[in-house]
Design a protein around this nucleic acid. Structure first.
Lengths: 155, 155
DNA sequence: GCTTTCTTGACTAATGTTGACTAATATTAT
DNA sequence: ATAATATTAGTCAACATTAGTCAAGAAAGC
C-alpha cells in the first residue's frame, strides 16, 4: 500500500475500471494530466502492465479523436505451451526451425491445417526476403511470435 | 467509445445508409454543410474509409447536378477476387491498407475470424519492424501476397 | 555499488481539419 | 455553335491534434 510509485497507481486506476468493464478507453493526455505525469508515462504503464501475457490487448489511434483502448481478453489454457514456443523461436529463427514450431502447433491441436498453411505462407522465404539473411530470420521470428501471441486468447 | 472526430461520424452516417441500401449518392456540399465541415473533408472521409480494399467503389460527377456515389461491391461475385487483392496490395502496403485487405477477405468469406487474427498478427507493426518504414511496407506486401496466393490454391 | 525499474522530455509518426486553388460539367448568353 | 458563367467535385499543402519511441537520468531494490 505504502510507497506506491505513480505507475502502480495508474495501473490500479485502470484495472479498477477493467474490473467492472470489459475494456477501458482513455485519452492519453487526459490521464497523464489527471495523474500529473508526462504523456509517455502512460505508454510505459501500458507496456509494462497490460501485456498479452497479462491478458490485455491494447489498441490506439492518433490524431483528432485519438484514444488508447485496453481490452481484457480471455486467455486460453495453452499458455505454457505458447510460452515454450515463443522461447524456442527467440529473436531469430530459420525457415526450417520455423516449420518445426508450426508443426508443433498443429500436432498440439492449437491450429488447423488451413491455419498451418497460412502461417507457413507468412514465414515463407519468398515472403520474407530482404536479401539480408540475418534480418530475414529476425523478421521471421517476430512474425511467428506475433502469431503465437494471438493464439493465447480467443477473440 | 465515443467517436470524437467528425470524420468517423460522417463515415458512420454513410455506412448506416449503406447497411440498408446497395449504394448512397450525396451532394458533397450538402453533407459538408450538414456536418459543418469544409467540403474537402468529405473527400478525406471517402479516401480513407471507402476504398476498394474496404469493398466500396466511388463514382462522382462535377458541375450542375453533380454527385458522389458510393457503392458497396459484392466481392464474392468477383471470380478474380484474390487477384484484385494482390493487385491492391502491390509491392508495398501500409498497416492501415493491409487491415482493409484482410477485412475484405473476411467479409468475402475467404477466411475465418481466427484466420483473420493470424494474418493480422503476421503483418502487425510489432512483427514487421526493421526500423526502415519503406522496407517494412515491402515485407508486409510480400507476406500478404504470399498468404493470398496460398488461399488461392486452397479454395 | 550494481542492477532494475521508473520518470521525463525531446523528437517522431499517424490521423484529422481547413482552405486556397484547380478541374470538370452544366447552363446561359451571344 | 461558341463563349462566358455558374455550379459542382478534386487536389494538395499547411496546420492541428492526437499517440509512440527512445534514451538519459533518477530512484528503488538488492
Amino acid at each position: 500500500m505504502e510507497n506506491q510509485n505513480i505507475s502502480d497507481i495508474i495501473e490500479s486506476y485502470l484495472k479498477q475500471i477493467l474490473a467492472e468493464s470489459q475494456q477501458v478507453e482513455i485519452r492519453r493526455a487526459e490521464i497523464a494530466d489527471q495523474f500529473n505525469v508526462v504523456p509517455s508515462q502512460i505508454n510505459y504503464v501500458i507496456k509494462t502492465r497490460f501485456t498479452i501475457q497479462d491478458g490485455y490487448v491494447v489498441q490506439s489511434k492518433r490524431g483528432g479523436g485519438g484514444y488508447i483502448r485496453i481490452e481484457k481478453v480471455k486467455l486460453l489454457d495453452n499458455l505454457d505451451f505458447i510460452d515454450s514456443l515463443v522461447t524456442a523461436v527467440g529473436d531469430h529463427i530459420s525457415r526450417h526451425d520455423g516449420l518445426a514450431v508450426v508443426r508443433s502447433l498443429f500436432e498440439a491441436g492449437a491450429v488447423s491445417r488451413r491455419e498451418v498453411n497460412i502461417i507457413l505462407a507468412a514465414i515463407d522465404k519468398d515472403a520474407i526476403n530482404t536479401g539480408d539473411r540475418d534480418l530475414d530470420q529476425q523478421i521471421r521470428a517476430r512474425v511467428l511470435i506475433s502469431i503465437l501471441n494471438h493464439l493465447r486468447y480467443e477473440s
